[in-house]
Simulated assay, not measured.
Amino acid sequence: MSLPAAKRAMNLDAFLAWEGQQPERWEFVDGEAFVMAGGTDVPNTITGNTYIALRNALRGTRRSVFMTNVRLRLAADDSLFYPDDSATTDTPT
């Protein structure tokens, strides 16, 4: 029986430098990197439909809606995610 690989903790700066050299997208949680799984037809359709619904619901407001390739940082713990869809509370600068 083999042991699991040792976890290598990184700080945010080290992760960002490392991630820039990777061909895949990675998320960063609690000092640990996690590769993102590839999408399939059904989740991709749901993501697209959610994006359209958010865009329609927020039309005429100062909010922006983003889809899949926009990284989200949680400032409280420096976690980084690539959510399927996200919306801002104000227009980004």
Rank of each mutant, 00 (worst) to 15 (best):
P43K: 07
F28E: 01
M1E: 10
A5W: 05
P92M: 07
W18S: 02
D30V: 06
V29R: 15
T61F: 08
P43E: 05
A87R: 05
K7S: 11
P43L: 08
A5S: 15
A87T: 01
L80I: 09
N56D: 05
W26R: 03
L58I: 00
D41G: 11
R62C: 05
K7F: 09
D41F: 12
F81L: 13
P43Y: 09
R59N: 10
V35H: 00
Q21M: 15
T50Q: 06
L74A: 11
E32P: 00
F34K: 12
E32M: 12
T61S: 15
W18C: 02
R25C: 03
W26P: 00
T50M: 12
V29S: 12
S2V: 09
T45V: 11
N56I: 04
D77N: 14
A37K: 07
L80C: 05
T47K: 15
T88C: 05
A5I: 06
N11I: 07
E24L: 12
A76N: 14
D84N: 11
A87Q: 03
L3E: 13
T88H: 03
A76L: 12
N49D: 06
D13M: 10
L3C: 09
L72D: 04
D30Y: 07
D90A: 15
R8L: 13
G20Y: 02
D13K: 12
K7C: 09
P83V: 03
P23G: 10
T50E: 06
G20K: 13
F28K: 00
G39H: 06
D77F: 13
R63M: 11
D78A: 14
T93V: 13
E27V: 04
A33L: 05
W26G: 00
R59Y: 13
F34Y: 15
T50P: 01
V42F: 13
V70G: 01
G48L: 10
S79Y: 06
E24N: 15
G48C: 02
S64K: 08
T50S: 11
F15W: 01
I46F: 10
T88W: 01
V42H: 10
N44C: 10
P43Q: 08
F15V: 00
L58T: 00
M10H: 12
T40N: 10
G60R: 06
R63V: 03
S79N: 15
T93A: 13
N69M: 09
E32N: 08
N49A: 08
A37Y: 03
L74K: 11
L72K: 06
L74D: 09
L58C: 02
F66Y: 15
K7G: 04
E32H: 07
N11V: 08
D78R: 03
A37R: 04
E24W: 11
F66K: 00
T47A: 14
A14V: 03
F15M: 02
T93I: 13
A57W: 05
A37L: 05
M67T: 09
T45D: 11
Y51Q: 06
T89I: 14
A17N: 08
